[in-house]
Design a protein around this nucleic acid. Sequence first.
DNA 1: CCAAAAGTGTTACTATTACACCCATGC
DNA 2: GCATGGGTGTAATAGTAACACTTTTGG
Lengths: 304, 304
Amino acid sequence: MLHSENKISEPNDQKEVSSAGNYCYRYPHAAVTADCVIFGFTGKELKILLVERGNEPYLGYWALPGGFMRMNETIEQTAARELAEETNLTNVFLDQFKVYSRVDRDPRERVITVAFIALLKPDDYKVVAGDDAVNAIWFNDKMLPPLAFDHKEIIQEARQYLKEILKLKPVAFELLNKVFTIAELQAVYEVINSANYDRRNFLRTALDSEIIKEVPDENSHSNHRISRLYTVNHNFLPSHAFEATTFSDDIFPADSKSQVKSDNNYVEAESFEKSALKEEIKEEKERKTPTKGLFDFLRNLSSS
Amino acid sequence: MLHSENKISEPNDQKEVSSAGNYCYRYPHAAVTADCVIFGFTGKELKILLVERGNEPYLGYWALPGGFMRMNETIEQTAARELAEETNLTNVFLDQFKVYSRVDRDPRERVITVAFIALLKPDDYKVVAGDDAVNAIWFNDKMLPPLAFDHKEIIQEARQYLKEILKLKPVAFELLNKVFTIAELQAVYEVINSANYDRRNFLRTALDSEIIKEVPDENSHSNHRISRLYTVNHNFLPSHAFEATTFSDDIFPADSKSQVKSDNNYVEAESFEKSALKEEIKEEKERKTPTKGLFDFLRNLSSS
DNA sequence: CCAAAAGTGTTACTATTACACCCATGC
DNA sequence: GCATGGGTGTAATAGTAACACTTTTGG
């Protein structure tokens, strides 16, 4: 629908090739990058991995690991690749959360970036902290150095985002090893929410929810008293959870398309509403849903 | 993405223009678009605005309104502009929720799109439904026609996203006029959550939360019995809410940067942790936070 | 006068908070 | 043996669910 003439010219087709530009388009294009806010959980604290810039602009400032999207990869693959280059880790939880597109955010060229959060477990954290391949440093998330571009804003919003999805999805376990103590789980919640929970209440809440189960395993946590170990109750969680979020695939039959061909603009698509499902929907509506939690966002807002 | 062919920005801010009048880059660049999932609330139902494609590819299929980002605007401005072109509305709630970047999602060129949701109030809905400037139709969100590109996936995820932010932010009121009835507020929650609440419990929950207040106004809802009217309690909400979510600006002093200059790779940035704030943080930690709602995401997952 | 939507209160139950002492281990 | 962190139970309170009849209005 857009410029269909907008074809990418191959470098060799181009007669007048400037030193800088071999890929030509009919309309201006922005560059696209992925930047990762890599959170590492140590077992107690949350850290953020930053790299020091060795070039202008922002020479000597710190920046989020990231890089340009290639033509043969999705933006998620870009993020995963950059993460792997920086940490040598794969299979890490990665979630995109916002596009930053201020016109002047990069002085060299128009660049928009897709920001991701990455969550590393204590084991991962140790691996990365022990590696010395790259010039990168873990920072306490409350004590950040001067940051390049709009990365300060990105990190702030990443923190906020992390807090939000913690309410929506079981991301806490992405920051924990397969087996963990209650203290660790509680620490995740406390760090992210800037909160401080009662140990007994926290344990009961977690156990009652059935999201975790005890693992009767040998333990070697060099604390003082030996902690019990837990793991996510996968039997319970993913079946109910991630499968259920998939929508049924064929809501609409492909051949009834013609019904909508109408000369009226902005009319109601009435023809689509006469469906055999209607009866069932009504029946389903008879069941009452608890109102619990409907306005809980008020809590978040005041305690942000 | 529709009517964008003629509205691409002019060749002004680009430095490297070849003889062909093209925009050339040293590395290949993807095109960037914004697509809007425009939800219109009628007072009872949720609708989605789609436009019919008049060109290949996907001729005759339906698509989300959207178009190319210009070099002098942010992606939010792109979305707002496209929304305005399609609906003549401004000041509409717009929220970006995900980037779609499958390599082959557009057969003509590498195009990534930033997907937005837009929420229209009943008044807005009437305006758009009455307009006849463009060939666009409101569809029942459960009965969609065949969709172009990956727009089916985008809409499905938009529905899911809407459900999620409804738990996090007062977006319900973006779908309601300034003054609304309880039935309308309840309808928003019921439609989005595919739920069915008890009227008495819903009213009490809403009033107890103090998020709404009654408006002793003249009413003219042509229902059977006259409803009371409510409005968002702005005195209560925005002050606690949106201001509080802003982080304090100067967490880190700019000149202590040199402290971190270290030869070690991946070391802990210890020097940053010695802060005067530490005492206060500890003190704050002494207060206990209720564990309420910590694992509420389990509810979502099973009832998605 | 009938159909359709709005208004209203109470009881039973469940969830959540607040809170203090003893126990195991490593040094 | 002592410091550190781990484990445990209960009572008071607050929040939530379930539930049916009457009132108002328009047609």
